[in-house]
Structure formats: C-alpha cells, structure tokens
C-alpha cells in the first residue's frame, strides 16, 4: 500500500538557488501557477460574451463575485469595498487550490501548513496595520474590552492578546488540517479498495461518499478562511 502522505511530497521541478536560498520551482509552485491560470481564465472567459441573461459559466463567475461582495458588505461594511480585490483573490486562491486538489494526481498546495500560514500571516499583518492606521494607539483598546473593571485588566489583556495573536495560527491550521486529513482519508480508503479485492466494493462505496464530502469541505474551507479574514478586517476597521 502506498504511503498516504506520499501525495504531499514536494518535488523540485526546476532547481533555482539565489544567494544560497532555495527558490526551486516545485510541484507546489506549479499547481499555484495552474490555479492562477485556471482562476483567471475562468473568471475572464466566462463573462466574455457579457450576456444579459448569463449562461452556466458566466452565472458561476457572477455568483462567486457577488458571493464575496456580499460577504464583505455584510461582515465589513462599506469601508470594506477597497479590500474587495484582495479578499476575492484570497477566496479564489484557496478555493481553486482546494478544488484542484480533488482532481486525481494533482498536488494540493493548501494542504501545506507553510502555504496556509503564509496566507494567514498576510491577513494578520494586513489587518493589524489597517487597525493601527485607522485608530492609532487607540487600537490597543482591542485587548481590553469597554466597560470592564480596570482591575480585571491583568487577566483580560493577556487573554485578548493571546486570542488576537493566535488568529493566524487557527486560520492556517484549520485549512491545512482539513485538506491534509481529507486527502489522507481518501488515500487510505483507496488503498483498502485495492487491498480487499472483490470486497473492496465496501470501501469503494464509502470512498464515493467521502469524495462528495471532500468537495463540500473544499468549498466550505475556502469560505471559512475568507469570512474569518472579513471578520478580522471588520474588527480592525470598527474595533469591537
């Protein structure tokens, strides 16, 4: 039986090294490039006809666009409009990464903690900068809720600080863990199908269900990643 974590292995395709730093073009990078091409092609070609009554593809592109637009309007407010391109890019990058990972023999870059952490830390740093830029030092009030007795500061401030700083980790680990575990389950199940011969029909049926579930998770996790980013952005713009 194949090692279920084999699928997550990084393989350098074009070795690049600049100043002693390894910047090789790997299979992970390849799939990121593919995701960029797929996302851009899908979103531009589908609306090429500019149909008044949209077809199937145009409809999907419009739904994604309006979905993210509504998400920002509902969770961030009108000030969130200027962050729409970033949030939409974030959503598409994670969504396409997750869905491409569902295609057999592909590589799922969102199953790598460093990738999800890279995305999460950009959100975290960006949100913190926006918070301080809008509110100055007043943004530090984030760590001490209004109306709480001053004496509780000694407990509340560390708790709030830890909860604030753990945001990028929870964001990164949630996506990474969901993707990794899903793919391991699929791989293990597929191994059972092969190993059990005729009786492989049982894990095969299970595999079908899990695959559908994984598609749902792929979309859901992209949504969760994006909406949490929106909520953090809302906190930074409006405070609590």
């Amino acid at each position: 039986m194949a090692n279920p974590v084999e699928q997550f292995k990084i393989q350098p395709l074009v070795p690049i090294e600049i100043g002693g730093t390894n910047l090789s073009f790997t299979n992970s990078a390849l799939w990121m490039v593919i995701a960029v091409v797929v996302a851009t092609a899908f979103l531009t070609l589908s609306v090429r006809s500019r149909a008044l009554v949209p077809g199937r593809w145009q409809s999907m592109a419009e739904i994604l666009y309006e979905f993210v637009a509504n998400m920002i309007r509902d969770n961030v407010g009108t000030e969130g409009r200027k962050y729409f391109p970033f949030i939409f890019t974030l959503f598409m990058f994670v969504l396409v990464g997750n869905l491409l990972g569902m295609v057999p023999y592909t590589f799922t870059y969102t199953s790598h903690i460093i990738v999800t952490f890279g995305l999460a830390i950009v959100v975290f740093i960006g949100v913190t900068i926006i918070g301080f830029a809008r509110h100055g030092t007043h943004y530090l009030r984030m760590f001490f809720p209004h109306g709480a007795p001053l004496a509780t500061a000694i407990i509340l401030v560390p708790i709030e600080l830890i909860s604030y700083c753990s945001r990028p980790f929870s964001l990164a680990i949630r996506l990474f863990a969901n993707m990794t575990v899903g793919h391991i389950i699929l791989k293990v199940m597929a191994g059972f199908v092969v190993a059990l011969g005729v009786f492989g029909i049982v894990p095969m049926a299970f595999l079908g269900g899990v695959t559908i579930l994984e598609f749902g998770i792929a979309v859901l996790q992209a949504y969760v990643f994006t909406i949490l980013s929106c909520i953090y952005l809302h906190d930074a713009i409006h405070m609590h």
Binding site: A29, Y109, V115, G118
Partner: peptide, 25 residues
C-alpha cells in the same frame, strides 16, 4: 522547502491579485 513555497506563494498570489483586480473583476 519552506522558503521556496513562500516565495512562489507570494509570486503567484500577487500575479493572481493583479490579474483579477485589473482584468477579471
């Protein structure tokens, strides 16, 4: 492979951002 992944993540994300914000959106 952490550095290379972060590097290519940065590159592809910026490219996607530029393509979506100027072309698709």
């Amino acid at each position: 492979f952490y550095t290379t992944q972060l590097f290519w993540l940065f590159v592809t994300f910026v490219v996607l951002y530029l393509l979506l914000s100027t072309l698709a959106m």
